[in-house]
């Protein structure tokens, strides 16, 4: 087993008196793609913010490999319209090399946007520029928080294919939060199901090859989710969280 880039141990977070996360232990090793899934309010974004260091845990600790460089693509980033910021200037935060910036933009499928203002970009262009920014940092770990939001379905698929390509090229690990369970099934090495704590985690790939997967695929993402193998070695009887694996919680509505 290769060394962990990032490892959390017994993470817990309480915000404003309510407990968002408890006892979360995850690890991401070099080169793997790990996806976090879970219903709304399950603490996915909170976990991501802990990993990138934007939030301090109430309990437990996050261990990063020494010198770890993180490339982060947030869910939605609202740049204030009073901030004049060209794409080139934004990317300059990650790299001073103009040629490298041009290459990065071309690489993520957004060539020639250098002179455009960030606030004038469409949702899809914006996310690609964010991805280019993350790449220019030459990250060991790419963290994507629903980074394909605002893209249509072919756009989403293309976006995650791109992420896979980049992982192969850079040799970086990817930790992502995704609503798009088809993508999760296809692209992840490992899936972590979160609902205030880690409900279960495992490899989705062998499941996707099963005949049941094909049969259930037509029933929407709920089927995908149900098939993803659970190892429920712990009781869910404490009643402090709702756990709806058979019907994928919010994904089905959002894709409808």
């Amino acid at each position: 087993m290769s060394a962990a880039l990032i490892e959390t141990e017994g993470l817990g977070v309480s915000l404003g008196g309510s407990r968002i996360l408890r006892d979360v232990s995850i690890r991401v090793a070099r080169g793997e793609i790990v996806t976090i899934v879970g219903p709304n309010g399950s603490g996915k974004t909170t976990l991501v913010r802990l990993v990138i260091g934007a939030l301090r845990p109430t309990e437990g600790a996050v261990r990063r490999a020494p010198g770890l460089v993180i490339g982060y693509v947030p869910q939605r980033l609202a740049i204030d319209h009073t901030m004049p910021l060209s794409v080139a200037r934004f990317l300059a935060f990650a790299s001073r090399d103009r040629a490298a910036r041009t290459r990065a933009l071309a690489h993520v499928g957004a060539p020639g946007l250098e002179r455009r203002q960030m606030i004038d970009l469409s949702g899809g262009q914006f996310q690609r520029v964010m991805l280019a920014h993350a790449l220019l940092r030459r990250p060991d770990l790419l963290v994507l928080d629903e980074a394909a939001q605002g893209l249509d379905q072919p756009g989403t698929a293309a976006f995650y294919r791109l992420v896979e390509t980049l992982r192969a090229e850079l040799g970086c690990a990817v930790l992502m939060v995704s609503h798009d369970l088809h993508v999760v099934m296809a692209a992840s090495d490992r899936v972590i199901c979160l609902n205030g704590h880690v409900c279960c985690e495992g490899a989705p790939m062998h499941v996707s090859a099963a005949p049941e997967y094909r049969a259930l695929f037509g029933h929407g993402t709920g089927g995908t989710m149900a098939l993803y193998r659970h190892e429920h070695d712990h009781a869910h009887g404490d009643g402090d969280h709702a756990h709806h694996h058979p019907r994928a919680p919010e994904e089905a509505e959002e894709e409808a």
Partner: peptide, 14 residues
């Protein structure tokens, strides 16, 4: 059209 083909949303550029 050269910028993107796979995005449905329209650009808000002026």
């Amino acid at each position: 059209s050269a910028v993107s083909s796979s995005e449905s949303e329209s650009s808000s550029s002026r």
